[in-house]
Each structure stands twice: as structure tokens, then as C-alpha cells.
Design a protein around this nucleic acid. Structure first.
Lengths: 223, 223
DNA sequence: CGGTGGGTTGAGGTATTTCAAGGCTCGTGG
DNA sequence: CCACGAGCCTTGAAATACCTCAACCCACCG
């Protein structure tokens, strides 16, 4: 299952909210690599590890019996995921591109949290931000139009991964669609429409590098 | 703002997951009454209290600027809500019917959690179940048909408030619709359809008392 | 009694999906 | 080197699930 091992203590600086916060818990940190498209963990599997994206991108989703898919979140560099506080994962997580993650054993963390309130509060804060994201996403899925959803998606990705004014999306149209509760065609049409209106531009022909030309009008669409 | 005071320590037995778990935190517990339709707290207001429904029902929602509404959750007898771990509420909460709540000051709780890992873990568990509910609801809102949504709603309410085989819904069709990301007409049609197929029955003419006649077929719809 | 607040049902409209075709890029193998 | 297929994206046309608008019913209540 684990493709490659590259264990080291991890030396790059960490932003607040990363696993580093929990490092005082003295739990094992190691790195693994997942190839594009491979599963990191599956729904209903025991949740033995917590993960942090070192490099790459991850999608986590639920499936209905007939194959309909809802992506609950994308995890980008620095994000922590797999933080399920039941014994089992409630989503399936897959690498969208070749991805390196840092991981820690969950049970040891849990054990530490029982005695250390600081660690428990860290976990609480992380869970709370997941909850907040899910709450906002419910509003999007329940009440926004396709154009509003795509606009919100672009603003979210811009905030989370834009470098030098251009965002290089790791995910394909289908992933975006399954995140937004739309079809890939509808996503494509919405992007074309925004492009036509001069609100965004494409770089290269892969259509995955997007530059926001008019953040104002885009924000207007994100009601 | 608070309509009525009826402070007492609370004597009825508590199920796991209720505020009682946190009672060791020695924080003030008092009761308040909200009349049907009144606001308990508003979005972006400071989150000073945590609430538990003693009797009645509460809806919590977000609004878009043009009035579109998404209800994130219904809180029924015994449920805890208002547990925001930011400084501000992210939803507006309203009493659906005349409702009695027990409340506690949030700041004191927070303070206790800083030193008591047990309390912090209690909070974490509550937040996690909220998250789990939100995750399931994203799948419903993003990918289920109207019939599947209504079926899922009925099963959820059956689980949470059914007494003697009949559930008396406190909320109107519009509330259900805004919970499920539908219109009230679509909800009504779905219920009629289920009624016509003999899957559920109505008691009385108010159409709010529902009895599930064929839980099997209803569960089949809840993919 | 008339008005109001639900609820249902029908008819028509529309946003999004579905189905289908075609283009572009890239890797692979002849 | 070019042909080929696979993957990804776009675009059009037709279908449809759901929404909108409207009428009506019923219970409740001052």
C-alpha cells in the first residue's frame, strides 16, 4: 500500500495549524509517497493514521451505491486530513497527483490527548475548522447556482494555492464537479462563461492554470 | 432577548452526549424559554452561550444576501447546539415551536477545557458528531434526488423523535425544504408520492404526524 | 366570519443534466 | 517520425428534474 518510504524528522518551517502543533505529543512522524490516483485510505477502514500533505494534493469523497460521488474536501500542501474521531474513516482519500504525506499514528495521539488538554484543544480546533468548511459547503450545495458554486470554488482555490497570481489546479473537471455537486460539463460551461466575460484567463492549453482577472466581479458571484 | 427565566439545577436523567457530561465544569446552568419563531442567536453574533434543548425544537440556518436559506441542522429534545469554537456564531438559531433551553456560559467552559483534558475531549466528541452530520448532509445535498432526500429526512427524524411508531414533526414544509436544498412544493410532492405508494401514512389533518409503514422500501430510497 | 398560515396539486418554465461529437495533448509503439 | 489511443476538455442539442407561479383546500383564531 505504501509506495515509498522517505522517513526523516521533517525540517521545513510549519505554519500554525499544522501537525507541528502536535509534535509535543512525541509521536512517530514519517513520510510516504502515493502515486497519482492511488487510494490513501478507504471509507470504513480503521483510522490508524493522521496525515499531512507535504507535497501534492488529495481528494476525499463519499460514494453512493450507484457510483454517484461527493467530494467533501481537497487537501493541499500543509493541510492535515484523516482526522476522524471515530474508529473508522468516513471518507475515501485518494492522491490527485503524485503526493507526499507525513503521517502519525492516531492511537498514540489519542492517548496523549487524554491527559494533555493542550493537545486535545489542538484537535478540537482542527475539527472545528473542518466543520466550518463543511457548513459553508452545505450552503453552497443546497442553495447556490452553478455559476456561484464555480466562483466560490475559484476563490477558495485562489486563497489556498495561488502563487504569483496564477493558480495551477491539481484536479480535473470531474473532481471539481463532484466537489460542487454538478456535472463536469456544467463546470466547464461556467468556466467558459467566466472566461468570456473577462473574469478569468487560462494559461497554457491544459486549462488547469487559471488567473483571476477580476476578483471583484468574481466575488459578486459568490453570494 | 431572553423571554423567561426558570432557573433550576436540572433533575431529569441525561443521555450520553448531553451537557451533563460537562457539568463537572461547574458552570452556570439556567433555563430560558423562546417563543415559536423567535431568534435564539444570530449569525456573526458573539458566541457567549452553549445551549441544550430541554423541550421544543430549534433550526439553525445560513442566509444568502437575496434570502435563500440553508438550514444546517434541527435540534430536538436533548440536543446541544451553539457549540462554536470561534468567537462568533456561524448560524442563526431560531425556535421552531415554543422551546425551553438550558444554557451555560461558553467562556467559563473554554477556560475549564484549557486545563481539563476530559472536558476538552467531550467538546471534541460533540464537534465531531456535528462534523459527521454535516459530511453526510453534503452527500445528500450534492448528489441525492429529491425523493432520496426526503426519504433520508424521514429516516433521520424517525430515528431521532419517533415515539410509538409515529413522528410528530415540529417543522413546516418550508423548513424541511430549506434543510434538504429543495422547494416546499417538491417536498410536498415527494411526501405525497411516498404516501401514495403506501410507504408512509398521515395522522390527523395537519400533515405533520407521520407514520412509516414500510421502512424497508424507505431505506431503499436512502441510497 | 373573514383572514392567515400551512399544505397540496397542476401547468409551464428553466437550470442543469444527459447524450453525443469533436478537439487538443501526450505518451507509446510501430 | 508519425500514427494511434487514452485522457481531458469543450460545445451543442435534447431531455428532465426541479422550480415557479397560481389556484385551491383546510384548520385555526380573533
Amino acid at each position: 500500500m505504501f509506495v515509498n518510504v522517505n522517513a526523516h524528522p521533517g525540517s521545513k518551517p510549519r505554519a500554525p495549524g499544522e501537525l507541528g502543533q502536535l509534535s509535543r505529543a512525541r509521536v512517530i512522524l514519517s513520510e510516504f509517497k502515493y502515486n497519482k490516483g492511488t487510494e490513501i485510505y478507504g471509507q470504513a477502514e480503521p483510522a490508524d493514521y493522521i496525515y499531512q500533505v507535504v507535497d501534492g494534493a488529495v481528494r476525499s469523497h463519499k460514494l453512493l451505491s450507484d457510483g454517484r460521488r461527493q467530494i467533501g474536501a481537497f487537501y493541499l500542501t500543509g493541510d492535515i486530513f484523516g482526522l476522524e474521531n471515530g474508529a473508522e474513516h468516513r471518507f475515501t482519500a485518494e492522491a490527485i497527483v503524485d503526493t507526499t504525506v507525513r503521517l502519525m499514528k492516531r492511537c498514540s495521539l489519542e492517548h496523549v490527548a487524554e491527559s494533555d488538554a493542550k493537545v486535545a484543544l489542538d484537535l478540537l480546533n482542527m475539527t472545528t475548522s473542518n466543520l466550518q468548511h463543511a457548513e459553508d459547503h452545505m450552503l453552497l450545495l443546497g442553495r447556490k447556482t452553478s455559476l456561484e458554486r464555480v466562483a466560490a470554488f475559484l476563490l477558495e482555490m485562489d486563497r489556498r494555492l495561488s502563487a504569483a497570481g496564477v493558480m495551477a489546479l491539481p484536479m480535473c473537471r470531474r473532481d471539481i464537479a463532484d466537489y460542487l455537486g454538478l456535472t463536469l460539463e456544467t463546470v466547464s460551461r461556467a468556466l467558459s462563461q467566466l472566461h468570456g466575460k473577462g473574469i478569468l484567463g487560462f494559461l497554457g492549453q491544459t486549462q488547469r492554470q487559471i488567473v483571476l482577472l477580476d476578483r471583484m466581479r468574481l466575488a459578486d458571484l459568490d453570494l
